[in-house]
């Protein structure tokens, strides 16, 4: 990997009072990578994502995106810079239709580019919003009020919204949690495939090692707030420590 990483963190640390939730997290993500983050509950995975997307301010350390220091930036500014995320508990607009949800994501993306005046709902924009749904296989729900959709579809929509405007980095917080076991793989396929077709970097938190080895070329294993291993998925999953502390731990979680 000779190319410059798009997103790097150096020595990130997060303390809540006396509790250290994350310590010495140094990661470099490259354009186009698909990275899985594994680790048992409380290992610091979500804390990491929350720091990178601006929800939590790191207690120490530095985050750089495209060579620019973005440490401590607000969620909105990180989103504007090109880092988007989805949520473990889907964050959508429940009383609106899926198409309206996608439309809002489109308009918000336009706003990030400063085109305030162009708030009109043109046919072109409507088309773009439909395109977003189609890309993630959600077009059949276009006119459905999303509160009534099944959990998995809500999460897909959440991810689809994050993916509007092809962000450079997209972080998915447990995309398959709350989805039944036999649907996990098809769900991942429907979201990861369109994401990988873009140029963006995809990072997802996952507990299911089958999904990790299937979809991620690289895996970062977290344990008690630090990085235990970081490398090609096959290697990481074979790593003894990872097997002992992470996979062993999650198998029963």
């Amino acid at each position: 990997m000779t190319q410059t990483p798009i997103l790097t963190t150096e020595g990130l640390e997060k303390r809540f009072g006396g509790v250290v939730a994350a310590r010495d997290i140094s990661v470099a993500l490259h354009a186009g990578e698909t990275v899985a983050v594994i680790g048992s509950n409380g290992a610091g995975k979500t804390t990491f994502v929350n720091m990178v997307t601006g929800y939590l301010k790191p207690s120490a350390g530095k985050i750089s995106f495209r060579g620019r220091d973005i440490t401590g930036m607000s969620p909105r500014d990180t989103a504007r810079a090109g880092i988007r995320r989805s949520f473990q508990i889907s964050q959508i607009f429940p009383e609106l239709t899926a198409l309206e949800n996608a439309m809002i994501a489109e308009i918000a993306a336009l706003e990030t580019k400063g085109s305030l005046s162009s708030h009109a709902i043109t046919d072109a924009r409507m088309h773009a919003a439909r395109g977003v749904l189609a890309r993630f296989g959600l077009e059949k729900f276009a006119d459905t009020r999303v509160a009534t959709l099944p959990q998995g579809v809500k999460k897909q929509l959440d991810i689809a919204m994050a993916a509007v405007d092809d962000p450079a980095v997209i972080l998915l917080d447990e995309p398959t949690s709350g989805v039944s076991v036999d649907e996990k793989i098809s769900m991942m396929e429907s979201v990861i495939t369109p994401l990988m077709n873009g140029e963006g970097t995809v990072l997802f938190i996952e507990h299911d090692m089958d999904i990790v080895s299937r979809f991620a070329s690289r895996t970062i294993a977290f344990y008690e707030g630090t990085i235990l291993a970081d490398g090609p998925t096959e290697e990481v999953l074979r790593n003894d420590e990872v097997r002992k502390y992470v996979i062993g731990g999650t198998a029963h979680a």
Binding site: T53, Q91, P94, I104, I107, A108, T112
Partner: peptide, 25 residues
């Protein structure tokens, strides 16, 4: 109200967190 601005209003009422993470204010 039926423009994008109106839609963003509804979005504020429903889920501000989502809006922020989409980059809107």
């Amino acid at each position: 109200l039926r423009s994008g601005a109106g839609m963003l209003c509804e979005a504020v009422a429903e889920n501000e967190i989502r809006l922020e993470y989409l980059g809107a204010s």
